[in-house]
């Protein structure tokens, strides 16, 4: 039983991180129909910048509690990531807005490689350790171990997703975003600043990515210039699983992918009588993805939308 609860926790923690990153993919896709493959690198840069700032803060010996130091580092890293997201859109994607769909996609992949190598030039090839200032003594809940940090990760992820939900569903800016997603030309005629809204989407997505990056770095204790690649791929799969372009879908897809991975690795061996082992962890996750797409081609929550011209 406690093993089961532990796997459930493992899945939820991993899943909420995937969900936060998946939101960044899905928001951009919803509005531009573009898969922003550089999003994983924004996540990585968020983690790297935070670690760098945190190291400086720890060395300054300010006497502040650890949580305050992390919060301070994040509040500095957040605008930087937002600015990065804004710049990427402004410099690389906007000039290609009316180009064939493949061009911005290839540009995104190119940007991802550039950012990865840029990060390696700035922060070096070595792993950046997250300063060990956070308390990692686990709490016992139902026989399963969970650290305070992991509780914060899940709560913060849920809170951010709820906030985003409100922002998009209830505010004027959110309505404008939905309008641009539906039909940018009509939205422009109705007086919506389409470019501004697209920039806002990138800024929001990158900020979420930054927070997710910090969560990953803090939880696993390390960051690396190449960490964004796998994370981005998994989160992208989560977004597709939930129905890309759909906010609730990204959240559910992320959580689901986390749970599938964790239960897959934990139980696949017992389920198949030792025939398949945990080396099929990823295979299992992607098999579920394929099955979902076979029966619901637009993902779990995705709606069938007419192909935009």
């Amino acid at each position: 039983m406690d093993i089961f609860v532990q796997q459930l926790f493992n899945g939820i923690i991993l899943g909420s991180i995937y969900a936060l990153i998946a939101l960044g993919y899905t928001m951009v896709y919803g509005i531009l129909g573009l898969i922003n493959f550089a999003h994983g690198e924004v996540v990585m840069i968020g983690a790297m910048v935070t670690i760098t700032l945190l190291r400086i803060l720890v060395e300054m010996n300010t006497g502040l509690p650890a949580a305050a130091l992390v919060a301070l580092a994040i509040t500095t890293a957040l605008p930087l990531c937002a600015l990065l997201g804004f710049t990427l859109e402004r410099v690389a994607y906007r000039p290609l807005r009316n180009a064939p769909r493949l061009s911005p996609l290839i540009t995104a992949i190119g940007l991802s490689i550039i950012l990865q190598n840029l990060a390696m030039i700035i922060w070096g090839r070595n792993y950046a350790p997250f300063p060990p200032i956070l308390d990692t003594t686990p709490w016992k809940i139902l026989g399963a171990a969970i650290t305070p940090l992991q509780v914060v990760i899940v709560i913060l992820a849920v809170a951010i997703m709820a906030g985003l939900w409100l922002l998009i569903g209830r505010t004027r800016k959110g309505r404008a975003m939905r309008a641009v997603a539906q039909n940018p030309n009509a939205a422009r005629l109705m007086g919506v600043n389409v470019d501004g809204i697209i920039s806002l989407t990138f800024v929001l997505g990158s900020s979420l990515g930054c927070i997710a990056g910090v969560m990953v770095a803090a939880n696993y204790g390390q960051a690396h210039a190449t960490m964004g690649f796998m994370l981005g791929l998994k989160a992208f799969a989560a977004a597709v699983l939930g129905g890309i372009g759909n906010l609730a879908g990204a959240m559910i897809g992320g959580l689901l992918l986390g749970l599938i991975e964790s239960f897959g690795a934990g139980y696949i061996g017992d389920l198949t009588g030792g025939f398949l082992g945990s080396q099929y962890q990823d295979v299992f996750a992607f098999l579920v993805l394929i099955l979902v797409l076979v029966f619901r081609p637009s993902g779990l929550m995705g709606e069938r939308v007419a192909e935009r011209a």
């Binding site: 899945g11 923690i13 991993l14 796998m230 991975e261 964790s262 690795a265 934990g266 082992g277 962890q281």
Partner: peptide, 21 residues
Amino acid sequence: GHEFTTDKSTDFTAILTKIKG
């Protein structure tokens, strides 16, 4: 028990939880 991961992974909680049992 013999579990598997990859040379790019950072999350091992699932297989470690299994090993715990």
